[in-house]
Design a protein around this nucleic acid. Structure first.
Lengths: 213, 213
DNA sequence: GGATAATTTGACCGAATGGTAAACTACAAC
DNA sequence: GTTGTAGTTTACCATTCGGTCAAATTATCC
């Protein structure tokens, strides 16, 4: 039978896991660069080093590959926010959240761009995830921030817009990398970029959220 | 002769101006939603309410439409930064810059997304513009910010990353609109969103850049 | 009103794209 | 070694897409 196409019914063989991983890596490379519609299965196949029908043996459609990628990325992408600790020191928590998000942008720019592409196009595949799990997590952490403000530990501010601003400033270095490089020039484009960004952003947010003396 | 295809040689007729504008509006709508590769000429033609060959009579290729759009958008997009006044009050200048950028994000989200799409895909069509005019303008304004810091009017900080952070936080409300709406829920999704964002961001940046007492 | 140029469209074309059919290979179980 | 199955590939198909062509239609100018 040809039915089992990378059979989900039985447990997966080692070769299946390897190939699927290989394909997802290639798909990430291509999707993040050209977007869902701009990417072609042939391109992914070439990057993955296998034939197009072989790809489609493991993932029945182009959309299935994209879906698998998005699911995986969305999960790891929210880890830093989950680590937000209500009992920690607010300044330290915020600073380390910024640093973690910047590290993600530096180490996984393709994942960030994949996600950005999806949102930009109106999140056609993950609207439910945004309104469900994502919203719940943000609501929870917003409450933490609000409690800090209520306890006089940080300035009173809108916690949602605070989170948005941390997301946007950090992801900017992955999503708009080309622009950042163009503006900074080759000189400063080295490894110092992320250190400079981290220093600036931590300073901005920590000072910006201080209680006025 | 059929040569003049929306003749650039002679001055344009009124009908040409109207149709070209009509086409660019439709192209903006489609490109900003689906990206360059995801957009099709047929879709643009349908939105514009004319036949495909008629579009191609005014713009010889899909890329020509995109190009015309990008050129126009890039220009208006930088206006707020140009308005940055070295002789003004730093706090007021930064606050009003943030407000202007937020107004752009609110009033011209399609333009913002068009630009974001282009950058995300590696800016294949406008790399020169980024490295040339954009970089020059940013360099000039960064020098202004540095002089403010040198004169003790604002805290010492990296002016480039300051500009990046203003860009990213403000454009976030256009480019990631779907996510913002999903997280905030319908309740708060009304017109207050931009007012709340403006208040938060102005507070963050003004306080974050104060000289410590 | 007629000549001329500008505009518009239906029909079409070649290339690319997502996906399929079917045959072939590798290999494990017996 | 036969057989059944997972894995792989060649050839192919239907559709879509960017773009062209020639003919038709509509302004414009005298």
């Amino acid at each position: 039978m040809t039915i089992p196409r990378a059979a989900r019914t039985q447990r997966r063989t080692r070769i299946q896991e390897e190939k699927e991983e290989q394909i997802l890596q290639a798909a990430l490379e291509v999707f993040s660069q050209r977007g869902f519609r701009g990417a072609t299965i042939d391109q992914i196949a070439e990057v993955a080093g296998m034939s197009k029908p072989n790809l489609l043996y493991y993932f029945r459609t182009k959309e299935a590959m994209h879906r698998a990628l998005i699911d995986r990325v969305l999960d790891t992408w929210l880890d830093p926010l989950r680590a937000f600790d209500a009992d920690g020191d607010p300044q330290a928590e915020i600073a380390s959240y910024i640093r973690r998000k910047l590290e993600l942008a530096r180490d996984f720019p393709r994942e960030s761009r994949l996600f950005a592409n999806e949102i930009l196009q109106g999140a056609p595949h993950i609207e439910e995830e945004l309104k469900g799990p994502l919203k719940s997590l943000v609501d929870e952490k917003a409450e933490v921030i609000r409690s800090w403000a209520g306890a006089g530990k940080i300035a009173d501010c809108d916690p949602y817009h605070l989170i948005f601003s941390i997301w946007s400033t950090t992801q900017h270095y992955a999503d708009f990398d080309v622009q950042v490089r163009a503006v900074l020039g080759q000189d400063q484009a080295g490894e110092s970029r992320f250190e400079d960004a981290a220093r600036f952003l931590e300073g901005l947010f920590v000072k910006g959220l201080e209680i006025r003396g």
